[in-house]
């Protein structure tokens, strides 16, 4: 199953992923129109600066997921892709999910007072944030192959060090 991965050395902090995410979760699906929609479309991933690095923070779709376990309204569920989603009409806006998420990537839609989080763009083959990333810092792929890429890169580093 494909997951969303971050190449931590790549992010330039341009926030294109955020804009694409918000536009993908708008009614119009178009940035120019999305910015004047109500409710304001929310992006569901964040770029933070940590120890000199730009770090895209995305929902890890944890399993077990603290947000899902903590939701008192039973508004969160795991879909067939393994993605934690919010049920329409169930969220009571208690923000327990926001308190419990270790990555801080659950946001809120102020107008309807409901939680919003990454739904991994169910209608798109590749999530909008990944498509928008100009440096390919965001990768949509299998965990094994992402790990293998890191191993290959690490092998190169070690080999050069041994020379």
């Amino acid at each position: 199953m494909k997951e969303l991965f971050v190449r931590l050395d790549r992010c330039q902090g341009c926030r294109s992923c955020q804009l694409a995410c918000a536009a993908a979760h708008s009614r119009s699906k178009n940035l120019f129109a999305a910015i004047s929609e109500t409710p304001v479309p929310r992006y569901r991933l964040f770029i933070e600066r940590g120890e000199g690095l730009n770090v895209p923070l995305t929902c890890r779709q944890c399993d077990p997921a603290p947000c899902l376990d903590a939701c008192i309204a039973g508004a969160l569920y795991r879909d067939e892709r393994g993605v934690v989603q919010r049920r329409e009409g169930s969220c009571v806006g208690c923000w327990t999910c926001i308190m419990i998420c270790p990555y801080g990537v659950v946001g809120r839609e102020k107008e309807r007072k409901i939680a919003v989080k990454c739904d991994r763009c169910p209608d798109l083959e590749v999530p909008a944030c990944v498509q928008a990333c100009p440096t390919r810092a965001l990768i949509y792929g299998e965990a094994d192959s992402f790990g293998a890429d890191i191993r290959r890169a690490a092998a190169g580093v070690l080999a050069r060090a041994a020379e």
Partner: peptide
């Protein structure tokens, strides 16, 4: 895809503290 801040005109590079970008979604 090109940078949405540039497309919207909300990226300022006029000083060395920039680039500053305004979040069009207000967050």
């Amino acid at each position: 895809p090109q940078c949405g801040f540039g497309e919207l005109g909300t990226c300022c590079r006029n000083c060395l503290q920039g680039p500053c970008r305004i979040d069009p979604f207000g967050e």
